[in-house]
Simulated assay, not measured.
Amino acid sequence: MLSMQDVLDYCDLDRGEIEAIAEHQHIPMTIAAEMSEVLLCTPEGVCQLHAMIIENMQHALEVGHNERVLDLMQTYEHLQRTHPLPTQH
């Protein structure tokens, strides 16, 4: 049986990014990890990943979870560095 760390090691995203997908989609981390690999295959999917984290930040702000906002900001900064938004030609 695979551990959560095994699953994360397989992914091209880090734990915070996978957690953000799971939170946004209301799905388990293992499913979010699988979903992340599909999303990274297309420019549209990368845009969706960015949107998910931004929406999570907006929700955390709305409900006053400031620590979560800070965590998500760091997660988003990492996503921007490793999987930037695609440029349009």
Rank of each mutant, 00 (worst) to 15 (best):
residue 2 L to A: 07
residue 2 L to K: 14
residue 2 L to N: 12
residue 2 L to Q: 09
residue 3 S to A: 02
residue 4 M to F: 05
residue 4 M to K: 15
residue 4 M to E: 09
residue 5 Q to T: 11
residue 5 Q to N: 14
residue 5 Q to C: 04
residue 6 D to A: 01
residue 6 D to C: 06
residue 7 V to G: 00
residue 10 Y to S: 07
residue 11 C to E: 00
residue 11 C to Y: 02
residue 12 D to C: 04
residue 12 D to M: 06
residue 13 L to M: 00
residue 15 R to K: 13
residue 17 E to L: 01
residue 17 E to M: 03
residue 17 E to D: 02
residue 18 I to F: 07
residue 19 E to P: 02
residue 19 E to W: 11
residue 20 A to L: 00
residue 21 I to L: 06
residue 21 I to M: 04
residue 21 I to N: 01
residue 22 A to H: 11
residue 23 E to H: 07
residue 23 E to D: 04
residue 23 E to Y: 00
residue 23 E to S: 05
residue 23 E to W: 06
residue 24 H to V: 04
residue 25 Q to T: 09
residue 27 I to W: 02
residue 27 I to T: 12
residue 31 I to W: 12
residue 33 A to N: 00
residue 33 A to V: 03
residue 35 M to T: 07
residue 35 M to N: 03
residue 36 S to E: 01
residue 36 S to H: 06
residue 38 V to L: 10
residue 38 V to F: 11
residue 38 V to G: 04
residue 39 L to V: 03
residue 40 L to G: 00
residue 41 C to S: 11
residue 41 C to A: 14
residue 41 C to R: 15
residue 43 P to K: 06
residue 44 E to N: 12
residue 44 E to V: 14
residue 45 G to T: 00
residue 45 G to C: 08
residue 45 G to I: 03
residue 46 V to Y: 08
residue 46 V to A: 09
residue 47 C to A: 07
residue 48 Q to Y: 01
residue 48 Q to F: 05
residue 49 L to H: 08
residue 51 A to L: 10
residue 51 A to E: 08
residue 52 M to Y: 05
residue 52 M to E: 03
residue 53 I to G: 05
residue 55 E to F: 10
residue 55 E to Q: 14
residue 56 N to K: 05
residue 58 Q to K: 15
residue 61 L to K: 15
residue 61 L to H: 14
residue 61 L to D: 04
residue 62 E to Y: 14
residue 64 G to W: 13
residue 64 G to I: 11
residue 64 G to E: 07
residue 65 H to D: 14
residue 65 H to Y: 08
residue 65 H to Q: 13
residue 65 H to F: 08
residue 67 E to Q: 15
residue 68 R to W: 02
residue 68 R to S: 08
residue 69 V to Q: 03
residue 69 V to R: 09
residue 69 V to A: 06
residue 70 L to M: 12
residue 72 L to M: 03
residue 73 M to D: 13
residue 74 Q to P: 00
residue 74 Q to D: 10
residue 76 Y to L: 08
residue 76 Y to A: 01
residue 77 E to Q: 14
residue 77 E to G: 10
residue 79 L to G: 02
residue 81 R to P: 00
residue 81 R to N: 08
residue 82 T to F: 05
residue 82 T to Y: 01
residue 82 T to I: 04
residue 83 H to G: 05
residue 84 P to A: 04
residue 84 P to R: 06
residue 85 L to D: 00
residue 85 L to E: 05
residue 85 L to F: 08
residue 85 L to M: 08
residue 85 L to Q: 03
residue 86 P to G: 06
residue 87 T to S: 10
residue 88 Q to F: 01
residue 88 Q to D: 01
residue 88 Q to C: 03
residue 89 H to A: 11
